[in-house]
Design a protein around this nucleic acid. Sequence first.
DNA 1: CTGTCAAATGATAATGATTATCATGATAAT
DNA 2: ATTATCATGATAATCATTATCATTTGACAG
Lengths: 144, 144
Amino acid sequence: MEQRIDRIKKQLHSQSYKLTPQREATVRVLLEHEDDHLSAEDVYMLVKEKYPEIGLATVYRTLELLTELKVVDKINFGDGVSRYDLRQEGAAHFHHHLVCLECGSVDEIQEDLLDDVEKEVETRWNFEIKDHRLTFHGICHRCK
Amino acid sequence: MEQRIDRIKKQLHSQSYKLTPQREATVRVLLEHEDDHLSAEDVYMLVKEKYPEIGLATVYRTLELLTELKVVDKINFGDGVSRYDLRQEGAAHFHHHLVCLECGSVDEIQEDLLDDVEKEVETRWNFEIKDHRLTFHGICHRCK
DNA sequence: CTGTCAAATGATAATGATTATCATGATAAT
DNA sequence: ATTATCATGATAATCATTATCATTTGACAG
Ligand SMILES: [Mn+2]
Ligand SMILES: [Mn+2]
Ligand SMILES: [Zn+2]
Ligand SMILES: [Zn+2]
């Protein structure tokens, strides 16, 4: 945890941003909810527990900044809000999601699985892949 | 074109919906822009050219209805709007997209490519896949 | 034909997430 | 200490989408 925050701090400094107390509190909330898919409002409410004087705008700004630095990925599951998902450190690509149509749960697949598909796309469509988004919609193991 | 509209008409009737003039005008616009990825506002402006008295709410309602019937797919590329994409008739799964980070273009991949990956996900994660969304972000063939 | 009724429409208000603005506060270098 | 820059918080503005409601349409029964 602390080492992770330290690395994010360095990453911020390398772009001449500071790790302010508000930003640190926000990052801590994200780390403590690594498996969840929190909206900005969700993050705001959780950060307020430790840092009640923080403003909603600051949370939005911090999430935007972390997205820029590729610490988190901004993702949209089709309900009306953006959700922020901590990226695996050092992962080349964003991980995949399993969205259950029954219970609404969102599970993660950390393995890439797309190597072959991406090779094919790169050659046949002459497209240089930088990243991807893959979501499966269906019935989760709990609902079956 | 006419046959396609006829099949959509039957699909509507089978759920006891009618193909009103407004709905038909909207469907025609979608068919005429099959390769584009139009927002509700885009569709509204295009429909107005043929049917100026249509209201924006009706366009939203029609797009919602067509999404329900799986005639179109609602998709979100991360700019603030939903876009509506005509589905290939009879396709089991939604097609894939190539989004260029340089020029913003969105190209389509109609081939499935995911058969093997889906088999693996179904068995290893015990998840019954109904549909998917796959988007690649990178540099398109024109920008290279 | 008419009258009836549910479905559909269009104008517009309301909502809700996100962004912009701006005065104030913190920080670090000079 | 002074100044300059960055960051923050309150709040207003924006903008896509949804809800509301009075009116219209079209299928159907008599
Ligand atoms: Mn995730
Ligand atoms: Mn498409
Ligand atoms: Zn489930
Ligand atoms: Zn391009």
